[in-house]
């Protein structure tokens, strides 16, 4: 028998690109609207970042100024103040909100009566649906430094404050951040519990049974079963939200005022002030430069979070 020369590799005949496109033409056709949408609404507007290298007042054509806007930005103390405020306010808010959401979820999980549990969940979700404008208005009344302010009236009634020495929580450099965090916890903690409640409902009941057989009480079950089961979700939530810390605007904008600007100005409100607070025609090139910097920092944070996410979630990134 004639021995054949056997080649282990399989010869693949390369199909020309045009033929492949023709073959899958209907898929490409279906993809076309998405492609057009993406180009129109995601990529073309990105060309606007070119303004950050120009002097542009919205009237005449932009003038190329190179890196002037960035040089000016990095030399402005108010810019750095806003940058550090953004990080500080966002990260502390994130830690507090997540921490409170975990605590609240654990407490909700302990409610045995299902109807009561659902009622409690509904009530704590509600503030999330209030707009920030309404929230600021309501809390403005609650924290009012007058006899009508709920908090001040309470503090006077229990003797912590004397009448006439009411605290202007939202107008005080000392108190504004505390008030801001409290308002954020009130508004967003309830909504933040959803993901933790979902995780809690997925814990295998056999683990609790095994813990009970080992003599664990409620506290030990929570400590050794519930909390470890939640830990992965907590880290995931923290990482996912870390990527969004540069987006802080609305909550700060509606609660800040002239007195607290050094502690409350964040990058987005800084851009707003640059554009609308100058009593003149603004230089959009500069505000675009600040916006671009903010986006780049946000992008870097997303990449860092993606890396951390892969580490924590066994190879699953966020992008």
């Amino acid at each position: 028998m004639k021995k054949k020369n056997v080649n282990n590799s399989v010869a693949v005949r390369k199909v020309p690109l045009s033929a492949r496109i023709y073959k899958y033409r209907w898929f490409y056709l279906m993809f076309l609207p998405v492609l057009i949408f993406g180009i129109l609404f995601y990529y073309m507007p990105m060309l606007g970042v070119l303004l950050s290298f120009t002097k542009y007042n919205g009237i005449k054509d932009p003038t190329f100024v190179g890196m002037d806007n960035f040089e000016r930005m990095f030399s402005m103390p108010k810019f750095w103040e806003a940058f550090w405020n953004t990080l500080e306010l966002s990260i502390i808010k994130l830690l507090l909100n997540t921490g409170m959401a975990v605590i609240l979820s654990l407490l909700l999980n302990e409610i045995i009566n299902l109807k009561l549990k659902k009622l409690a969940q509904t009530i704590i979700y509600l503030p999330h649906f209030m707009s920030w404008v309404v929230t600021a208005s309501v809390w403005g009344m609650i924290l009012s430094p007058t006899s009508e302010g709920l908090v001040n009236t309470f503090l006077i009634s229990i003797g912590v404050l004397e009448k006439g020495s009411e605290v202007y929580f939202l107008g005080s450099v000392k108190w504004w951040r505390f008030a801001y965090y409290v308002i954020n916890i009130w508004k967003d903690t309830g909504w933040g519990t959803i993901i933790f409640m979902a995780t809690l409902s997925g814990i295998n009941p056999e683990l609790y049974e095994a813990a009970a057989i080992d003599g664990a009480g409620r506290w030990k079950k929570m400590r050794y079963v519930t909390f470890p089961a939640l830990l992965n979700t907590i880290i995931t939530v923290l990482i996912l939200n870390l990527a969004k810390v540069m987006n802080l605007f609305e909550s700060v904008f509606v609660l800040q005022n002239d007195a607290v600007v050094s502690t409350a100005q964040v990058l987005q409100t800084y851009i707003y002030a640059q554009t609308f607070n100058g009593s003149g025609i603004p230089n959009y090139g500069y505000s675009t430069a600040v916006g671009l910097f903010r986006s780049l920092v946000g992008c870097a944070l997303v990449l860092v979070c993606n890396y951390l996410s892969k580490k924590v979630r066994e190879g699953r990134g966020i992008v």
């Binding site: 000016r72 600007v261 050094s262 100005q265 002030a273 100058g278 003149g280 603004p282």
Partner: peptide, 13 residues
């Protein structure tokens, strides 16, 4: 255009 945004914010503060 360049400075009055920061300046006005500072004055108001």
């Amino acid at each position: 255009s360049m400075l009055n945004g920061d300046l006005t914010t500072l004055k108001n503060e």
